[in-house]
Design a binder for these strands. Structure first.
Lengths: 122, 122
DNA sequence: CTTGACATTGACGTCGGTGTCAACGTTTAC
DNA sequence: GTAAACGTTGACACCGACGTCAATGTCAAG
């Protein structure tokens, strides 16, 4: 299938698909006229990428998952490298949460100081 | 005082000070030769800005605080507009925390699915 | 043949705060 | 007097995941 169909089926813009390819995450055969030619497997690849981006992964983070799928695994997460990324991501998220909680406390404290009557739930 | 001294005393680069001025947060008299001339109050202004940036405010968010100080208040947060920003920021932070918690759960779930043996604390 | 939908590559814009450089004028110290 | 340190404005670079436009090529339907 060509890029437009892949875009429709995955809900991803053609711009993004070319961007993914530019970064080595997606590869496409070319037809005689130079058009990109995708297979059914690429639908899965793109879906995997989007699912990961959606939960805060960077594009680079998705690379091991894509590689994992290319090696024939049914799930992008079922390779050692992917699991490592999962765990690293969990740690990153935890750290971000810690930072936000600290910020929240700091802001609430400043508010309380400059506006003693203001209640802050939490 | 000139910009270099203000930079030293606040720990903020001259680049940033000019940037703040460009965005209307800082104002400086000019000496005969065109150099910026700051007062003691400006040290407080800049400190206020940095304190707020540090806890995640955008530069734009700091504007009410700066205005508040200019009106003579001892604290940038002791004006109604500032309090509103405080409260908005608290809501934003809470929302970010909610998003992160949801992501964490999602990632943990994906990990558990592709790696049943992997323990996830939390 | 023409129109329109779709394809290609390349490049700039977004957002925020700042680093860094250029090309130049001023002040300070020796 | 001269060099070093400081000031000025203006502009480009960065990060990340795209949107969007330009200029051009390709193909199917009327």
């Amino acid at each position: 299938m060509r890029i437009g169909e892949l875009a429709d089926r995955t809900g991803v813009s053609t711009r993004s698909l070319r961007y993914y390819e530019q970064h080595g995450l997606l590869r496409a055969r070319r037809t005689a006229n130079g058009y990109r030619d995708y297979s059914e497997d690429d639908v899965k690849l793109v879906s995997e990428i989007r699912a990961l981006l959606k939960v805060g992964f960077t594009l680079e983070d998705t690379r091991p998952f894509v590689d994992c799928l290319r090696r024939g695994h049914s799930t992008g997460g079922s390779c050692a490298e992917s699991v490592e990324v999962y765990e690293r991501k969990l740690n990153e998220i935890d750290e971000e949460i810690r930072v936000l909680l600290a910020r929240r406390a700091e802001v609430a404290a400043q508010l309380a100081q400059s506006c003693p009557g203001c209640f802050v739930r939490g």
